[in-house]
Design a protein around this nucleic acid. Sequence first.
DNA 1: TTTTAAACGAGACGGTACGTCCTGTCTTGCT
DNA 2: AGCAAGACAGGACGTACCGTCTCGTTTAAAA
Lengths: 199, 199, 199, 199
Amino acid sequence: MYARPVEARHRGNRHGRSEAARLAVLEAADDLLVELGFASLTIEGIAARAGVAKQTIYRWWSSKTDILLESLAVDAVEHFDTAAHEDLGADLRAHLRRLAVFLTETDAGAVWLALAGQAQHDTAVAARFEAEVVLPQRERDRAPLLRAIESGALPGNEDVELAIDQLVGPIYYRALVTRQPVPARFTDALVSHYLGART
Amino acid sequence: MYARPVEARHRGNRHGRSEAARLAVLEAADDLLVELGFASLTIEGIAARAGVAKQTIYRWWSSKTDILLESLAVDAVEHFDTAAHEDLGADLRAHLRRLAVFLTETDAGAVWLALAGQAQHDTAVAARFEAEVVLPQRERDRAPLLRAIESGALPGNEDVELAIDQLVGPIYYRALVTRQPVPARFTDALVSHYLGART
Amino acid sequence: MYARPVEARHRGNRHGRSEAARLAVLEAADDLLVELGFASLTIEGIAARAGVAKQTIYRWWSSKTDILLESLAVDAVEHFDTAAHEDLGADLRAHLRRLAVFLTETDAGAVWLALAGQAQHDTAVAARFEAEVVLPQRERDRAPLLRAIESGALPGNEDVELAIDQLVGPIYYRALVTRQPVPARFTDALVSHYLGART
Amino acid sequence: MYARPVEARHRGNRHGRSEAARLAVLEAADDLLVELGFASLTIEGIAARAGVAKQTIYRWWSSKTDILLESLAVDAVEHFDTAAHEDLGADLRAHLRRLAVFLTETDAGAVWLALAGQAQHDTAVAARFEAEVVLPQRERDRAPLLRAIESGALPGNEDVELAIDQLVGPIYYRALVTRQPVPARFTDALVSHYLGART
DNA sequence: TTTTAAACGAGACGGTACGTCCTGTCTTGCT
DNA sequence: AGCAAGACAGGACGTACCGTCTCGTTTAAAA
């Protein structure tokens, strides 16, 4: 029913869980989210699409958001895994651009938005979302600024947290609230304003 | 949204719906949202709390989000219905503070967040939310800047849309994503940065 | 919306009910019973078909069976309103034949069967059905035998009630239970057996 | 109707339905029919009384009449499962008495009457009622007469169907239509008349 | 001729039960 | 031991009618 990867040849029975089932569930959840939207995503539907029993899902995940969180954790790290630029401006422009693309143009971004939405409805989801998604992302957002402080391009007393809010806030606002596109022109302008106000 | 003629308080028959039932439903929905959260909000629960038949709800609203949209439309207008200040800085500080309070401290703000969340799950909700909530709010956000242009405090070629994104984006980001508080110090800093970068 | 019979020109207002509405309801109920069956017969459906408000029905009738009882009372009398024969055998054969045709081939018979069915479900209907339909019919069934006793064709001590049960019982049994047709051959055989056993 | 293997008492999973749930539903339906009457018998009520989910009922039965038909099939067979007498008269008297008691004095008879009533309202019920209840019962009614023909007590050309109609018809007529009691005196008289007319 | 009150059409109301869908738990037999 | 399968109790969904109610119109008897 689903592909059984070579490196998982001993799974699904006496010793350990089935990696094949795990991957089939993650992929089915991602696919169905994009196809149907979060509201129409059901455990039963994921099980049917993955060719997996409901019980197998409940054995390893607690809810549909739990599945999405797992799939997101992997994808987000991959997306932002990149080398730094030497110049602070270039560094920030690349990072914000990458963030904008992630949120508005990738399947993982769709998962991100869905989870952010569900976090508004369910405090348990909100807590996990903050711990597992928002804070790690915040860490990644902070990196360019910390690098600049270390290199002396920014003073040591720079208010980094406020800077992050000002740099990424408008991007999330567009993606989540106004649903406008977030072109490079827009993210570049945010960087220009930030650097300009500092001189 | 609905005319409420004084002489028509006691309807529910041939010529019009029951205003009492309408208000009971809106209030019950608001209350239950705050008490239980959006995920546990059900039409049956609203009907029971409001002392109303389910059919009466379905006669006038298509879903629980439809009810919340109606209640929000009224409350949002009321919250931001305020006089302007003479000074652009004071005007902006007051407006952003009001926005922050609305989103993080009022029941209507909880409704706003829940709807923003649901908009991530359902494109129909997203469309109505944009048209009936986001755009009118955007209009209100634009007002202080337009007043400043008219009075000459800002140049005519100021990029108003970008300014709004920079001013309110971080506030929505905190309310929706990081769920940090949004103190006056934070909104004031946003205004300072905006005005400072302009000099 | 409905025909207004000439003899009802003064109704529907200050003093007295609308004969037009009454007839429209009775006819709609009969029609819909035959079209849809008793189970799908609803007060709302009757009101819509008759072009009458629900309230008008509830003003004058207590239920759909109440409507059918009224319509049946008229039709049954009409159907059996007939002259007697001189000979007991011919009298009985004509009467049983008439009963069989009524139950199995007329619209009023369909109403009769529906009410008999509902009488199994609702003791209030059963009581009215017995008083207003079964007993009057029993009276009509008795008439040929009483005439025969009076004319001397039957002895005065004849067990009339048992005779009726034996004569009409098999006809109702076929109409209600086995749903077989009830041809003249069958009713004639019942009469032959009854008269034959008496010799 | 359903096999009940001894070794499968505890099902409700992959390989079969829950026998416990099935019996609970049948018993609840019977009880509630007698307590409340057919009109007030609801699927929700049966589910609640049986401690069963509505879905479990809908999984195995299509309607409340479907449940009653299943329960009746068992009970009717049990009630008439009896040894034959040697004498035709005694055989018939015993059988008619048994039929009268069934219809007028047993819970299963109440179910029988309710289904006969519903058969007047719904042709699908009528079809199943005839096939699963009336025809099997007719078979049982026929047995005494066939035994008599075989033993030579009745001639080979006896009109058995007509005889059945005349023997049982009046009993059903009393039970369904006039709702009079059906004492042994009455059923014995039917037998006497039948045998007497044959001499 | 005007007033006026009963019956009317329309249809919104609080309810009940419907039949469907999905939840999360469970039991079974296979691998 | 993990799995696919699927029956289970539970509960919300959105729909259809129930019987009640209030509205504004119609109409003929009373004033």
